[in-house]
Computed example of a mutant assay.
Amino acid sequence: MTEPRSPDEVAAGWYIFLREEPDDRDLRRQFEVWLRESPLHQQAWTEINETLGVLASVPPERKKSPGMGRRNGSMPANDRVGPRRVRMASFAGVAIAACVAAFVLVPDLTLRLRADHYTQAGVTEDIHLADGSEVILAPRSALAIHINADERRITLLRGEAYFVVHHDPSRPFTVTTGSVTTTDIGTAFDTRTEGGETSVAVREGAVHVSGTGGLPFERDLHAGDRIDVKGSQVEAGSQSPETVGLWRDGMLVAQGNTIAEMVTALQPWTRTHIIIAHDTLAARRVSGSYDLRHPETSLQLIVHPYGGKVMSVTSWLAVVAGR
């Protein structure tokens, strides 16, 4: 249902990691395989070099950060690699800051202006609405609330939320995610939206799901039913009702999901930006249960059986590569 990270994101990860591990031949080999896989990869690599090359050209005095040097401001004369490491750390810090600003901070600021509730990585929020309904907001999610005497309308701007709705026939309870609207018929259900994709799954009761604009469809979902919408494609499926919304208990269950999908599910639970740098590995399918409260360990457990290796660049960035 989800796709691997964009070529630009993967290229940014390779750029930083190759400079921190310049003598790692296996890493270089994996990078060259990735580079040859697609002209888009080559284009992204060229662009990231040009962009971060501009950052590298900033005068050294403007790239220094407090506390980076030694306490006495000097360096032993026989520490030949010291200056190189300091320059590398300074440059990596600038590059990582640029990536974070491009992929995280700017979109988040926009969401915060639109949202009534917003959660950060690894944090959930219980929201008790005035009508008696309850919303549990997943990490890195945002929603806007509009409730008055005539209607109850929620807009899920990003991420995932679990709804336990107090049924009121006189005031329909609707949740809008992009071009998909879910109307409660007395239920507990989960909905998720990310990157133009929307999913709705019902744990109890029933909902009515409909599309708007260029996505004309209508369907009733009951306990165990789910629907996945990606672009103009609408796919119906089913799952055990008790597995709907298990993330509330810190559990991630895979039932033949791709590693790319699992990484997407793990991402909101960690501040570390995860990049998959191996397309074949991203497409491998896994099954099992994983602990969302320990996303780094879960990531290792997901990729290791398939030859995957998680390389931690910094606390902000991890690259998943294949052997």
Rank of each mutant, 00 (worst) to 15 (best):
G132Q: 10
A138M: 01
I147E: 13
I154S: 03
H117K: 03
A115T: 04
E134H: 12
D150S: 12
S141I: 11
D131R: 11
D116S: 05
A138K: 08
T119E: 01
L129V: 08
P139M: 06
D116L: 01
L129Q: 08
A138G: 06
P139I: 02
E134M: 12
H128D: 14
H146S: 15
H128G: 14
S141F: 10
A121T: 11
A121I: 03
A149Y: 00
D126Y: 00
V135F: 08
D126H: 13
I136H: 03
I145R: 09
I145T: 14
D150L: 11
E125F: 00
A130C: 09
A121C: 04
R114C: 08
A142H: 10
I154T: 02
A149I: 06
A115F: 04
D116V: 01
R152D: 05
D131S: 12
R112P: 10
L143C: 08
L129M: 09
I147T: 11
R152L: 04
I147G: 04
R152K: 06
A138H: 12
R114N: 10
H117M: 05
R152F: 05
H117Y: 14
R153P: 07
L143W: 06
E134G: 00
L137E: 06
R140E: 15
G122N: 02
R153K: 15
I147W: 07
Y118R: 06
V123F: 12
P139W: 01
G122F: 06
Y118V: 08
V135G: 04
Q120Y: 15
Q120R: 15
D150F: 06
